[in-house]
Design a protein around this nucleic acid. Structure first.
Length: 155
DNA sequence: GCCAACGTTGGC
DNA sequence: GCCAACGTTGGC
């Protein structure tokens, strides 16, 4: 069992949007970064847990919790010419972009702000707090995940 | 809106 | 394969 963090811009897709999807489930399409894709394609398992992180907003931070509910999915948006995620080099026989589905678990009563996360002396492996990291999907060490989850719930 | 940092593209 | 130019990310 692994732990993850998924960034999203809440104006486009928020933890509330996930909660309101049928079964609280949504395919995480639109990722066009190879490292992030490889995490989804190669390393995620059903029932892994994931933080939902809100970026590019008033209070960037961890907004809630989801679990990986399906793996091995092909991102359908790569085949849609009108989509901004269209990839002319991808074919159904040889898709380039893979994804997983996330299912809503929990929304925290308050967002756990990035500013607070950065103050935690024992959060040092998390890519989020490392300078220059622009990964949209990243692994979270189990001890750091548990610490942040506790922090988010008792806020 | 600024800008640092990063990823991708494409000419050579 | 190098690397300059460009586009994007995302906190502040």
């Amino acid at each position: 069992m692994r732990y993850w963090l998924f960034k999203t811009e809440p104006d486009a897709f928020s933890i509330d949007d996930l909660a309101h999807r049928p079964d609280g489930t949504e395919g995480w399409d639109g990722v066009r970064n190879y490292q992030a894709r490889n995490f989804m394609r190669d390393q995620m398992s059903v029932n892994d847990l994931a933080f939902i992180y809100h970026s590019s907003c008033k209070v960037p931070g961890i907004a809630g919790l989801a679990r990986i509910s399906q793996t091995g999915l092909v991102d359908p948006t790569q085949f849609i010419p009108d989509s901004k995620y269209f990839d002319p080099k991808a074919t159904p026989e040889q898709p380039r972009w893979h994804m997983v589905a996330l299912t809503f678990v929990e929304k925290f009563s308050q967002v756990l702000p990035l500013s607070l996360i950065k103050q935690q002396a024992n959060i040092c492996e998390l890519s989020l707090v490392k300078k220059g990291s622009r990964l949209s999907i990243m692994p979270v060490a189990s001890n750091e995940f548990e610490w942040l989850l506790e922090l988010a719930r008792k806020q």
